[in-house]
Design a binder for these strands. Structure first.
Length: 651
RNA sequence: GCCGACGUAGCUCAGGGGUAGAGCGUUUCCUUGGUAAGGAAGAGGUCACGGGUUCAAUUCCCGUCGUUGGCUCCA
């Protein structure tokens, strides 16, 4: 007999060889019907795996993440079989489940697969699914496994198997299909009722751009047709929140082929929005003891050789600008920090004067690979809300925590609650990617982890994600389509102070090396605005939105009164405009709703007589008639409820 | 940079070997309106660009540029 412990702590006794499915059936018929995967003592097992020792069993249904994973992993087998049947001779490589669905990387040889083929693939996959084939795992010796794939001429699988231990190799069979597989399947293919191929993309074998490029076929599947329909509708909704679409509709920014790819042009409304964001941060920064500085857009190549950026990114930068007569070399600045280091060097500092906090909305230029450019989130010219803090070692901890406070204030004020905090540290396997002493790295990494822990941040540690000069704490936010982007960043740097020979005079009358913190709570204005748009669906917070209200005169007769109201709104710092076109009120309202103005103010005879305004809330309908004062209060109240003032922890 | 897709009016898009269409917007006129589209007429396009095939290319083929989904990269 063996003892099976369930998640609720209940212990059941069974004869050795009982399967998770049988345990589920023992608990309830309903669970037995729905169980699609299980884990035993922390390892994923099949629902038909015989359990032969005491242990903890967790049963999963479609509603569990692990259940979905098994479902999608199994679906990738079905996809693979469909591809093999439709395109004989394809070489399969790997096909994991991902966050939303699954993919399979396939070498199609000469054949190319495109959207036109999706229908056929889906049809074939569903046909296979309907066959209700059981997934069956079997152990294979390394020699047999290698022989199997060598015969097929599949070098990819051979390479995978060569890296596995003999005795640790399993194949999974279903229908006529066999794949090298570690396990974790649903009972049979029949559970897959809906199947969709989403897109195809190139992907390098093992993520290495020097190795062959495969075709990655992305798909998603569901146990119910309705789930697929809902998922596709969700994707459609997400597209409506795409910042590229909203930016165009709201007239915030544009791109011009003539100016160049990845170089955003900010339209008047976008520029005004940006300015408000900048002022918002400037105000908080002032309280937090920052001083604004300004530096030029180019710098001598030597500056970046000194900083180490040239050695690391010289080839991947816009190439040097040459002066016509002296042939001096300048670089478009890719970073503000070297400039700020030179600002620090402008005069000697005593420890009594530190920390120095230099802030600048600095525009930088980076040569990003053309395939990487994406709307405002990945561009070649962008403005960082940058600052560099020069402090003593003793001050580092407190300064870092102050910056965390400021970053959280910024994210909180703009409604970003679902960010992910990520501590990026060195890749232990590639130490040569980083500059600076291992000692300093240890200190810096520890300082960040301590500060994040003390601030109660829920963070994950990502090895290999550090900048080449130091570790960092990043705030990651997802876009409409679920892709993660880095917004705010805080980085500890022992390196640049050394390279620029920065010093301060200590209490011991000796020169000491300051520590530097790089930080940008927004990250870049471009990316921040992009994510803010996606996050809000274009319904920006009232304090930020370009126009808070649009005045809609009922007819041309009322234009004059509208102008008068506009004037008194402007006197109360409310941003508004008049729609004086000769259109019906209905049409003006419809268009104002679509243009996402937070408030619509209808003025006609009634209002003019009473000296009031009729207010309509975007998406919320008629609020009735108000005095201008009452409306101004309403706006102020809403702004105050979302926009808190920054409380600095400075003494 | 790599693989795939896409590029038609200001915007959203249809079409297709015989040099172009819709809706919205814009312009003019009529209408002076009360909480999500009042009516009419007009203007607007080297069908991204450059080659090739063809009697004929916006349409088919190749290349370039741009956009896009991924991959790699991201100071």
């Amino acid at each position: 007999m063996i003892e099976i412990t369930l998640p609720d702590g209940k212990v059941l006794e069974y004869a050795s060889g009982i399967t998770p499915y049988e345990v589920a059936r023992d608990i309830s018929e309903g669970l037995a019907r729905n169980v699609i995967s299980a884990s035993f003592n922390g390892n994923t097992v099949e629902t038909v795996t015989p359990l032969k020792e005491d242990g903890a069993l967790v049963l999963y249904t479609w509603n569990d993440e692990a259940g979905k994973k098994a479902f999608w992993h199994s679906s990738s087998h079905v996809l693979a079989q469909a591809l093999e049947e439709l395109y004989p001779g394809v070489k399969l490589t790997i096909g994991p489940a991902i966050e939303n669905g699954f993919y399979y990387d396939v070498d199609f040889g000469e054949h190319t697969v495109s959207e036109k083929d999706f229908d056929a693939i889906e049809k074939k996959a569903l046909e296979i699914a309907r066959g209700k084939h059981d997934f069956k795992m079997r152990e294979v010796s390394k020699a047999d496994a290698l022989a199997h794939y060598k015969e097929e001429g599949n070098d990819f699988k051979v390479e995978l198997i060569e890296n596995l231990q003999d005795g640790d190799i399993t194949f999974c069979d279903h229908s006529t299909f066999t794949d090298l597989c570690r396990g974790g399947h649903i009972p049979n293919t029949g559970i897959i009722k809906a199947f969709k191929v989403l897109n195809v993309a190139g992907a390098y074998w093992r993520g290495d751009e020097n190795r062959p490029q495969l075709t990655r076929v992305y798909g998603i599947s569901f146990p119910k047709q309705k789930d697929l329909k809902e998922y596709l509708e969700l994707l459609e909704e997400a597209k409506k929140r795409d910042h590229r679409k909203l930016g165009k509709e709201l007239e915030l920014f544009t791109f011009s082929q003539r100016v160049g790819q990845g170089l955003p042009l900010w339209l008047p409304k976008g520029a005004a929005l940006r300015e408000r964001l900048e002022n918002f941060l400037k105000q908080a920064q002032k309280k937090a003891g920052y001083e604004m500085v300004v530096s030029p857009h180019i710098g001598q190549k030597e500056l970046y050789v000194t900083s180490g950026h040239y050695a690391k990114y010289g080839e991947d930068s816009f190439q040097p600008i040459h002066t016509p007569k002296e042939d001096e070399e300048f670089l478009l600045k890719p970073m503000n920090c070297p400039h700020h280091c030179e600002i620090y060097r402008a005069r000697p500092f005593s420890y009594r004067e530190l920390p120095k906090r230099y802030a600048e909305f600095g525009t930088v230029y980076r040569y990003e690979q053309s395939g990487e450019l994406h709307g405002l989130t990945r561009v070649r010219g962008f403005t960082q809300d940058d600052a560099h803090i020069f402090c003593t070692n003793d001050q580092l901890d407190a300064e870092f925590k102050n910056v965390i406070d400021l970053s959280l204030y910024v994210l909180g004020s703009l409604g970003f609650e679902n960010f992910r905090a990520q501590v990026s540290v060195r890749d232990p396997e590639n130490p040569e990617k980083y500059i600076g002493s291992s000692d300093n790295w240890d200190k810096a990494e520890q300082a960040i982890i301590n500060a994040a822990t003390e601030k109660g941040l829920d963070f994950v540690i990502e090895p290999g994600e550090a900048a080449f000069y130091g570790p960092k704490l990043d705030f990651m936010v997802r876009d409409a389509l679920g892709r993660q982007w880095q917004l705010g960043t805080i980085q500890v740097d022992y390196n640049l102070p050394e390279r620029f020979d920065l010093t301060y005079k200590g209490s011991d009358n000796e020169l000491h090396r300051p520590v530097m913190i790089h930080r940008a709570p927004f990250g870049s204005m471009e990316r921040f605005v992009a994510l803010l748009l996606e996050h809000t669906g274009g319904n920006l917070p009232l304090w930020l939105v370009p126009e808070q209200a649009i005045l809609l005169p009922v007819s041309e007769k009322h234009e004059k009164y509208a102008e008068k109201v506009l004037n008194s709104l402007e006197n109360r710092e409310i941003r508004a405009l008049v729609d004086a076109r000769s259109e019906t009120v209905g049409k003006k309202i419809r268009e104002a709703e679509l243009a996402k103005y937070p408030f619509m103010i209808i003025v006609g005879d009634q209002e003019a007589e009473e000296g009031k305004i009729s207010v309509r809330r975007h998406g919320g309908g008629d609020l009735g008639s108000l005095t201008v004062e009452a409306f101004a209060d309403l706006i102020q109240k809403e702004i105050n409820s979302t926009l808190k003032t920054f409380e600095s922890k400075l003494n």
